[in-house]
């Protein structure tokens, strides 16, 4: 697994629960306190060890931890870059949903080695969608749920999201768009603001 995911978990734990919690998770998982480098590659077992340790230290269900991670990835100021890259997917939330299928290819343009979950979107009509998520981390669908919830907020869309278990080896997420323009949403300039 590319260190990017591990690094994301590390930053999520540090930014949300504090440095002390990260140190406890690292110790429990047998990882050095410095943690991970986003651009290096680590064994998949390390990722699993960190997630298991985080679940134990936080005493919360794995699903909740993963969903919070997904929300963090697009709503925390420290990871503004990812929100921006996702917003390039489309002008509105529905267009964004459709762009998810291109996400692995888009990601590979910048990071050819990244192990991205396969994403398939089925438009079921009546503003209902079914997203299949095929990744190496069990529960990656919950990360997607948290991420989609935060992206809907970002676009100002009102959606219902539900993790619908597994089917054919993929985690299934049901999405119902109640109102595409429910709130103002956050502004998205194509250009990065000058520092």
């Amino acid at each position: 697994m590319q260190g990017l995911f591990n690094r994301a978990v590390q930053c999520f734990l540090r930014d949300t629960y504090g440095h002390g919690l990260w140190l406890a998770v690292a110790r429990r998982a047998g990882v050095g306190p410095e943690g991970f480098e986003a651009m290096l590659t680590y064994d998949n077992a390390v990722t699993e060890a960190v997630l298991t340790a985080a679940v134990a230290e936080l005493a919360r269900p794995r699903e909740t931890v993963l969903e919070d991670l997904g929300t963090y990835l697009v709503s925390h100021p420290n990871v503004e870059g990812l929100r921006r890259l996702l917003r390039f997917g489309g002008a509105g939330f529905v267009e964004f949903l459709h762009s998810l299928e291109d996400l692995p290819d888009r990601t590979h343009l910048a990071l050819p080695d990244l192990d991205m979950p396969g994403l398939d979107l089925e438009d079921q009509g009546n503003s209902r969608f079914r997203l299949s998520c095929r990744g190496v981390i069990p529960g990656v669908g919950y990360v997607a749920v948290g991420l989609l919830r935060a992206m809907a907020d970002d676009y100002g869309a009102l959606v219902l999201l539900e993790h619908d278990g597994e089917a054919d080896g993929a985690e299934v997420i049901l999405i119902e768009l109640l109102d595409g323009a429910y709130a103002a949403g956050r502004r998205f300039d194509l250009a990065v603001r000058a520092h």
């Binding site: 890259l85 002008a91 343009l109 998205f188 300039d189 194509l190 250009a191």
Partner: peptide, 25 residues
């Protein structure tokens, strides 16, 4: 950047937005 253009300012078939995405990524 100077003119604060958005996705809507480009034709949906224009790859400019993809290029901006790539530059940023």
């Amino acid at each position: 950047r100077r003119h604060a253009l958005t996705v809507e300012d480009f034709a949906a078939t224009d790859l400019t937005v993809e290029m901006l995405y790539l530059v940023e990524a």
